[in-house]
Amino acid sequence: MSNSSLPSLRLVVMAKAPLPGYAKTRLIPALGEQGAASLAERLLQQTLMEAVKADLGPVELHVTPDSLHPFWQTLALPRGVTLHNQTQGDLGQRLWQAANTYQVAGQGLLLLGTDCPALTAARLRKAAVALKNADAVMYPAKDGGYTLLGLKRVCWRLFEDISWSTEVVAQQTLERLQECAMLCRCLEVLPDIDEPEDLQFLPCAWGVSQAES
């Protein structure tokens, strides 16, 4: 299927600066502070590369801390990726703000983080195809969250009172979608890279090894 037959979407990538002691802190016991930060940066670059490669529409990178932080100011963004600040508040408030920023009437969006190297351009296009015949699309995560949420319309309820960073995020979000009378298509479950045991799901070519057992 050619991309010209797919709907135009905004790809909204939520990212934390990959700084030692700030990003991927749960991986520090396995990789050390610098190793965890280096992996976070590689995941960020991989996500942006695949988002641009998918060629589905504009790619927005919504970041924390502020986009004026030296890391973001010196980061070489792929062509066409725009940089935006995340708002204050919990993840639900930040997702809501990012979903509504620069929204064009009738344009859907894909919300994703940078924790899932399995979110390839092909899988992003698969989500876009699924969204043609549904109100929402989700790639659930192995840990009970989701790696991607695609929406034809945005509703605050989808991000309200969610137990973020727990194993019930996907289930609660599906319940909210039902409350909002939005039909959701669930695609395959994918792994996020958050804990040391998740390192097995990294591409072998990355050659990531644990600093300690």
Rank of each mutant, 00 (worst) to 15 (best):
A128K: 09
T74E: 15
A30Y: 11
R94I: 11
A37S: 14
P7A: 10
R185F: 01
P196V: 11
N133I: 02
E188I: 00
N3I: 06
G207N: 14
A51E: 01
A36I: 09
H62M: 02
L148Q: 04
Q171G: 02
M182T: 06
G145M: 00
K132F: 00
L119H: 07
P117L: 04
L110P: 01
R125P: 08
Q172F: 03
A118F: 02
F201W: 15
L111K: 10
P65E: 14
R185S: 12
L91M: 11
N100F: 01
H69E: 06
G145E: 11
P65Y: 13
W72Q: 11
T87M: 03
L11I: 15
L6N: 09
L43W: 01
L190T: 08
A181V: 11
A141P: 01
C184Y: 06
W72P: 07
A121S: 15
N133W: 07
A54G: 05
T166P: 03
L124S: 05
P196Q: 08
T173S: 10
G144A: 11
V208Q: 03
S213T: 13
F71H: 13
L183W: 09
V13S: 08
K152G: 10
V81W: 01
M14Y: 10
E60L: 06
M1F: 04
Q107S: 00
Q172S: 06
H62Y: 13
P191N: 08
S213E: 14
L151D: 01
D194I: 12
M1V: 07
A105N: 02
R94P: 04
L131P: 06
C204V: 09
T47I: 09
R26M: 02
T166K: 05
Q103L: 13
E41R: 12
G35N: 04
Q86R: 10
M49Q: 14
L95P: 02
S67G: 01
A76F: 03
L27A: 06
S213V: 12
C204P: 02
P191F: 00
D55T: 02
S165F: 14
P191M: 00
G35H: 04
R185V: 12
L91I: 06
L199F: 08
Q45G: 00
V104W: 07
A76V: 14
Q93D: 14
M182D: 06
C186W: 00
L43R: 08
R10N: 15
L19P: 07
M182L: 15
G108N: 06
P7D: 11
Q200K: 15
Q103F: 00
C180P: 03
A181D: 15
P18I: 04
S209Q: 12
L174C: 04
F201V: 04
E179R: 07
S8K: 15
R26H: 03
M1N: 03
S163E: 15
G21K: 06
V59T: 04
P191H: 09
E179C: 08
L39D: 09
L199M: 05
A51C: 11
A30I: 12
W206H: 08
V81Y: 01
S38Y: 04
C116I: 13
A23N: 11
P70E: 14
C186L: 12
R10L: 14
A30D: 13
D192V: 04
E41H: 13
D55I: 01
L158Q: 06
S213Y: 12
P140S: 05
Q178T: 14
D143C: 11
G106H: 04
P7S: 10
V168E: 08
C116M: 14
V208H: 02
A134L: 03
P20E: 11
R94C: 10
D194F: 03
L48E: 12
E41A: 09
P78R: 12
H62G: 01
